[in-house]
Simulated assay, not measured.
Amino acid sequence: MSLRLMAALGLAASFAWSSPSRADPTAQAALRVSPQRETVLTSWVPEKPRGVVLLSTGHGSWPEKYDAIASAWKAAGFAVIAPLHVDSIRYPERDKFTAQASFGERIADLKAASGYAAATWPALPVIAAGHSFGTLSALCLGGGLSYVGNFRDPKVKAVIGFSSPGRVPGLVQPQAYASDDLPILLITGDRDVVPGIVTNWQDHLLPIQTSPAGDKFAITYAGAGHDLIGAPADPNFAPAVAATIRFLQAYALDDEPAKAWLRAGDDTTAGSWIRR
């Protein structure tokens, strides 16, 4: 991964998160990632969790920015836990990590969060979720980028992504998601572009188009941009969140009516579906 790519992703984070945060997460705690490093784990936990969502933020961003969707998942009965990645502008020692190292540290963060979930809620199903570069991180837990390394987390049952890095030369190769055989829901919009990185919003659909068929879903919302996940005032936000909750019910809780809804729902004027 090049320094130029990571710098561009940093610009994307600034583009996506220009509004102030109004987050009120449930709790924050130290998360030991390795003998050399720890980070902060932000969590949203209902009284009686039914499942766990591991949330990976966009490059340069931080967990509190995702309070709206994390709170919606919490209200639906899912504990949401999100580590502060080393590429975040809120990470106190960000400058100590090279661009190349930050990708591996993201995976280490999520593996540590997964271990925390297993120790805290050992019987609960786990779903990985992400935004933008965080979607790539979540897809790695599902088996993606196998030519880079074996990042698969066997505890993860499915993946939710808002946007994706698109077609990144040198990193996201044509076979990047060929080993992602878990259920995937990807949400994007026809204005989901990032200057200098993703100029064609349809590139975000690559994980659905190229991963093995079976329980793969993508929804494109008319007028939605790259920051939809953090824009509750956007009219597309509510239906997008509702779709993610159906997906969580379907593939974390094995809810057959939710699976039927995902497989049979028709396109609307707001959302256009791909099902594979």
Rank of each mutant, 00 (worst) to 15 (best):
H131V: 09
V148K: 11
S137I: 03
A108H: 09
A112I: 11
L145G: 02
D181E: 14
P165Q: 12
A108S: 14
I160W: 07
V168E: 01
V156D: 13
I184K: 07
D180E: 14
C140W: 01
L171N: 00
V193N: 04
Y177A: 05
V172P: 00
V193R: 04
V168L: 04
I187R: 07
K157D: 00
P195K: 03
D180Y: 03
D192A: 09
G134C: 10
L185F: 14
I197H: 14
A119W: 00
A138N: 07
I160P: 01
Y147P: 05
G130H: 11
G134S: 09
I160R: 01
A99N: 05
R191Q: 15
V159M: 03
F133Q: 07
L185H: 06
I187A: 14
Y116C: 01
F97R: 01
A99E: 03
D95A: 15
G144R: 03
P174M: 05
I197V: 13
S114Y: 02
S132F: 06
S163M: 08
S164T: 15
P122E: 08
P174Y: 05
K96T: 13
G142R: 08
D192R: 13
P169D: 11
L141W: 07
S114K: 02
A113K: 09
P125Q: 09
F103P: 02
V126R: 12
V168K: 02
G130A: 11
L136P: 00
R191S: 11
L182V: 15
